[in-house]
Amino acid sequence: DDWEIHFNNITIRLHGVSEEQIEELKELIKNGAHEEELRKWAEEVNR
């Protein structure tokens, strides 16, 4: 699925990401992940 997530003036566009991966991302954000951590997560997902 395609997703677009907005938070802290950042837009993250995701393509072909599962519901499970979105839940992981929500947890990262909820736990106060920094932009660098989110980038690493996105790189892993996009492999």
Rank of each mutant, 00 (worst) to 15 (best):
3 W>K: 03
3 W>S: 03
3 W>T: 05
4 E>K: 05
4 E>Q: 05
4 E>F: 09
4 E>I: 11
5 I>D: 02
5 I>W: 08
5 I>V: 07
5 I>C: 12
5 I>F: 14
6 H>I: 14
6 H>A: 07
6 H>L: 10
6 H>W: 03
6 H>V: 12
6 H>Q: 11
6 H>P: 03
8 N>S: 09
8 N>E: 11
9 N>R: 05
9 N>W: 07
9 N>L: 06
10 I>G: 06
11 T>L: 13
11 T>A: 01
12 I>H: 04
12 I>E: 04
13 R>I: 13
13 R>K: 10
13 R>M: 07
13 R>C: 13
14 L>S: 03
14 L>M: 07
14 L>I: 10
15 H>L: 09
16 G>P: 04
17 V>N: 01
18 S>Y: 06
18 S>I: 04
19 E>P: 11
19 E>G: 10
20 E>L: 11
20 E>I: 10
20 E>T: 10
21 Q>M: 08
21 Q>F: 08
21 Q>Y: 10
21 Q>A: 11
22 I>N: 01
22 I>M: 09
22 I>R: 06
22 I>W: 08
22 I>V: 08
23 E>I: 11
23 E>V: 09
23 E>N: 14
24 E>V: 11
24 E>S: 10
24 E>T: 08
24 E>G: 07
24 E>F: 10
25 L>S: 00
25 L>V: 05
25 L>R: 00
25 L>G: 01
25 L>H: 00
26 K>E: 07
26 K>P: 00
26 K>T: 07
26 K>L: 15
26 K>F: 15
27 E>M: 13
27 E>G: 10
27 E>A: 13
28 L>P: 00
28 L>W: 02
29 I>V: 07
29 I>A: 02
30 K>Q: 09
30 K>V: 06
30 K>S: 09
30 K>Y: 05
31 N>M: 10
32 G>Q: 03
32 G>N: 05
32 G>V: 01
32 G>H: 06
32 G>W: 02
33 A>I: 12
34 H>E: 13
34 H>M: 11
34 H>Y: 08
35 E>K: 04
35 E>A: 10
36 E>R: 06
36 E>T: 06
36 E>F: 02
36 E>Y: 02
37 E>G: 03
37 E>N: 04
37 E>A: 14
37 E>Q: 11
38 L>M: 03
39 R>V: 14
39 R>P: 04
39 R>L: 15
40 K>N: 10
40 K>R: 14
40 K>P: 00
40 K>L: 08
40 K>T: 02
42 A>W: 14
43 E>W: 01
44 E>N: 14
44 E>H: 13
45 V>Q: 10
45 V>M: 12
45 V>R: 03
46 N>Y: 05
46 N>Q: 15
46 N>W: 06
46 N>A: 14
46 N>H: 10
47 R>L: 15
47 R>V: 14
47 R>H: 08
